[in-house]
Amino acid sequence: MTLTMFELVLFTILTAATPLVIAAIGELVTERSGVLNLGVEGMMIAGAACAFAIAIVTGSTALGILAGMGAGMLLSSVFGVLVIFLAANQVATGLALTILGTGLAGLVGSGFIGLKREAALHLHIPFLSDVPLLGKLLFSHDLFVYLGWALVGGVAWFLNTSRSGLVLRAIGENHHSAHALGLPVRRVRFLAVLFGGACAGLAGAYLSLSYTPFWAPGMTAGRGWIALALVVFASWRPLYAFAGALLFGGATVLQLHAQAAALGIPGQLLTAMPYLATIVALVVLSMRRRRGSVAPASLGLSFMPER
């Protein structure tokens, strides 16, 4: 393999990993606060549709991104009200969110099928971007990729060293104790859910504005679900989530290359690869953790204080 080919593969792995990284980091924060939002897929695809629609209508990528994040947050706020303030079942509400988000995305996107946009601008720093290998890998992506990296670093810092991060972790760990100490359990959880929604929407915006700059129904292709699996895979730690996303990005890219190389493997088997990989990853991780779980102890449980 030539250097350029190698470079290209690594480059595409980074781009393919980006939507997974962004969505997984958002969900990771949500889950660390003790809320399981299974609606990532729905928020992501709604984000993709809204981002593309607004970007086409206004001609502005920035507004498109904001619209994508806004759509994710709006959906997640509905979810948040239901599960946090009305103590609705988190699993079922998350599923409802996915169904709703997919439907809304279809409605919004129906007028934009077949349109195309320029992909979001890629960074180019003279000299730095031209350094062989590293230059391309580090300094010539579009802003989403850098945003993803910044999110990983920022969230890792937030959770591990900031006071607010400590409060969030404490609430996910034991909401009764947190409440007894006077920590605002439901407010923090709602904010964490909104953050997760914004991230999922942003991941969707990346798909429709940069990764494949057009809108197609079902374009997220289960990436929201894979992001959920990544959070488990990463044992709820941001840097591991980044590493996991790179692995999955790698699987996706390998699949594309194998398809292009026509190795005689049925296309469907390659298409199924990410899903199979997700199952395998979950199994391997769960086997390693037979004794006890590192999941936030209050994950998925409702909290209703009495006053």
């Binding site: 509400t93 709703l100 997919t102 439907g103 279809g106 129906s110």
Partner: peptide, 21 residues
């Protein structure tokens, strides 16, 4: 659009869960 059915179904499930409270 046919997606309206999905939207309606999603909304319905949300309402069911909210009413369950």
């Amino acid at each position: 659009p046919l997606d309206m059915t999905r939207v309606f179904q999603g909304t319905l499930l949300m309402c069911v869960l909210a009413m369950d409270v």
